[in-house]
């Protein structure tokens, strides 16, 4: 896999507060990443550091293979952060032309990108006349001008109405389907669940989880089981290849699946071994439950 962004023990302190603590992860080409975390968990600070606007306190990061300076690497990156920043007195096209000059790309793609975000008919309107949703879409168009290797989006749906949120998500999905690597920071879990394949979960500047959404989601689900002889049941489950973690929860056992298995199969297998279940439920955890679980454990 070709790596796009590598972080090594990145740390940022604002006076006594540590906003990002020893953060390490790698972004690989072709995946859609989500950075999840409650407000103030260091998402924007992390993005600010790799985007050259916030100075790191410690650690290191590099773009691509690390051979180029950060600002040159950023010419191959498209990024929008928090809220769209453009010159209010310029029109959409003039603003995008300026971005082209900074990135050193031809201005020929402006119309095409405006079309992608559905702003072509407003291309000669001044930026200050735009609604928030339009501003956000213009920001996406601007980030796409250089056909970036990676698109970085920080809270792209913040403050938008449901229609605006929907529009932005559709655009993101469309871009992702074309194979562009995306890094999406958000505190909206369903947003990340819907769009991302990988997640980095942050809390108070520390990484709690890095990996695929599926793994985190325990996508095979888990069983909640009860039998008359709990000891035998537990031994049996521990010896079963299909299960990973097994934990006691009150009178029941919770067994996490490592491979897909449906409830009737398990029931049949256990009965053949003489274990009769009095309680059998199969469930799937939502990302939200997982997230709350992860962040709760560390309190």
């Amino acid at each position: 896999m070709q790596s796009i962004l590598t972080l090594n023990n990145l740390t940022k302190k604002f006076g006594p507060i540590t906003a990002v603590k020893n953060l390490s992860f790698t972004i690989e080409k072709g995946n859609v990443y989500g950075i999840l975390g409650p407000n103030g968990s260091g998402k924007s600070t992390t993005l600010g550091i790799v985007l050259n606007v916030v100075n790191k306190t410690n650690g290191s990061y590099h773009w691509f293979d690390g051979s180029d300076s950060t600002h040159n690497a950023l010419k191959k990156v498209g990024a929008i952060i928090e809220h769209p920043n453009f010159y209010p007195y310029m029109t959409a096209v003039q603003n995008l032309a300026l971005v082209c000059k900074i990135k050193g790309v031809p201005t020929s793609k402006i119309d095409e990108k405006l079309e992608v975000v559905g702003l072509l008919d407003r291309k000669n309107s001044k930026f200050r006349t735009f609604s928030l949703g339009m501003k956000q879409r213009l920001a996406i168009a601007s980030a796409l001008l250089n056909d970036p290797e990676i698109l970085i989006l920080d809270e792209p749906t913040n403050g938008l109405d449901p229609q605006g949120i929907h529009q932005i998500r559709e655009i993101i999905k469309k871009i992702a389907s074309e194979g562009t690597t995306i890094l999406l920071a958000s505190h909206l879990l369903d947003e990340v669940e819907k769009v991302c394949s990988h997640v980095v979960i942050l809390r108070k500047g520390e990484s709690l989880y890095t990996g695929t959404v599926d793994e985190m989601n325990a996508s095979h689900g888990f069983f909640i089981l009860q039998a008359s002889d709990m000891g035998v049941l537990e031994t049996e489950l521990k010896n079963h290849a299909g299960f990973g973690k097994i934990k006691k929860e009150g009178d029941t056992l919770v067994a996490y699946l490592e491979e897909p298995m449906d409830a009737s199969t398990l029931n049949q297998e256990l009965q053949q071994k003489g274990i009769v279940l009095s309680h059998l439920v199969k469930r799937k955890e939502s990302l939200e439950e997982q997230f709350l679980e992860l962040t709760k454990n560390l309190n």
């Binding site: 050259n52 600002h71 950023l74 990024a79 920043n85 453009f86 010159y87 209010p88 050193g104």
Partner: peptide, 21 residues
């Protein structure tokens, strides 16, 4: 100062302009 009040300085840097430039 407009670059600060419009927050375009931030955007310029993100777009790949270095602080020196």
């Amino acid at each position: 100062s407009n670059e600060y009040s419009y927050r375009t300085l931030k955007q310029n840097l993100i777009d790949g302009l270095s602080k020196k430039e």
